[in-house]
Design a protein around this nucleic acid. Structure first.
Length: 324
DNA sequence: AACCGCATGGTCCAAAGGCT
DNA sequence: AGCCTTTGGACCATGCGGTT
């Protein structure tokens, strides 16, 4: 199974951070998303290892069932639906009297209320499909450096790391089987899927000029290169990257940062700091993106995602390699 | 209508890399 | 080292839309 993607917001923050375009609150948000994403990926690994290969696993989906809600992980098995909300918290978390606290300080967000709301949506959805299909939701604390104290009422909705394997192995045993084929159920569930209703952050006209322009070294992140016919050579670490790949990667970075704009040759030329000619940029755009408008205001469709997600496993004619 | 700026697509060629 | 293929760069004719 391929690795879980970062959300568009996450990608936006990451690319902005790499180009010095984030303030303190942005960097904090990025850090939180990083930690959360690592936790989710780790959870995926447990499911991969101990789960049943017949399970259908949906990750990071949005459903619209009397209102939108995001679901980290939804597993459809012969025994029903299992929703997981993975938390990679570390430290001391305590829950008592309906209130959360972290290392003694109170927290505003109540993840159990969030989970309950998500489960209401899921139940609503199943009500429209087949009310006999059971669904249960759990919060998974994936981090081993977490101490967690809570009153009994929430304990049965929590899965701690040290019981995760057991939980996965046993979770769909002992339930009655579904009345409908799992494929049919999945198709009906998929009909409730929607795109994320919240647009990713934008890079407005006042912020955009402040982000660093140019091609970032894939290895060390510096911007100075010797531009050769088929390669970029980083002046700091000596890393050589295929020119086509470096330019495509940078175009994708532009697309992530300016996810509200189409891709246009002149804009990208400026974003790349003039390292390659407009003619070359156009040839790359033609090769890898869908044309949205031709002629005077030519533009290409902006997928708004990092190259890793759009063109993973692509083979470029010219190879990267390390010098010295 | 004439002009301008820009996108486009085709052709040609030197040369960079890959391959043996 | 030398051959072969691919490709980026240059040049050009053309088309489109907006402006003078």
């Amino acid at each position: 199974m391929e690795k879980r993607k970062q959300t568009k917001e996450h990608q936006w923050l990451m690319v902005m951070a790499e180009r010095n375009g984030l303030d303190e609150s942005g960097r904090r948000r990025l850090g939180a998303l990083d930690v959360g994403h690592v936790g989710e990926c780790e959870f995926d690994g447990w499911i991969e290892q101990f789960g049943d290969e017949r399970w259908r696993v949906y990750r990071d989906v949005w459903i619209d069932a009397g209102g939108p809600t995001q679901i980290d992980t939804m597993i459809v098995s012969e025994a029903g639906l299992f929703i997981f909300d993975v938390k990679n918290y570390s430290g001391e978390y305590a829950y008592s009297g309906g209130k959360w606290s972290v290392n003694g300080r109170p927290l505003i967000k109540d993840i159990f209320v969030q989970l309950k709301r998500s489960m209401e949506k899921v139940t609503f959805m199943l009500g429209a499909i087949d009310p006999s299909v059971p669904a249960e939701g759990r919060i998974v604390f994936i981090n081993e450096h977490l101490s967690f104290e809570a009153e009994g009422a929430v304990q049965d909705r929590v899965v701690m790391r040290h019981v995760l394997k057991k939980h996965i192995l046993e979770m769909d045993g002992g339930h009655p089987r579904l009345r409908m084929p799992i494929d049919v159920l999945c198709r009906e569930i998929e009909a409730f899927f929607i795109d994320c209703p919240y647009p990713p952050p934008r890079c407005d006209a006042s912020l955009y000029p402040k982000v660093d322009k140019g091609v970032r070294c894939h290895r060390c992140g510096e911007f100075e290169h010797e531009v050769m016919r088929y390669h970029f050579r980083c002046l700091y670490c000596g890393y050589r990257e295929a020119k086509e790949k470096a330019v495509l990667r940078s175009i994708c970075e532009y697309g992530v940062i300016r996810n509200d704009c189409m891709l246009r040759v002149a804009d990208i030329h400026h974003f790349l700091g003039g390292t390659v000619g407009e003619r070359y940029i156009r040839s790359i755009l033609i090769k890898y993106f869908r044309v949205a408008a031709r002629g005077r205001h030519a533009a290409y469709v902006n997928p708004g995602e990092v190259m890793e997600y759009l063109f993973s496993g692509m083979n470029f004619r010219y190879k990267d390699w390390n010098q010295e």
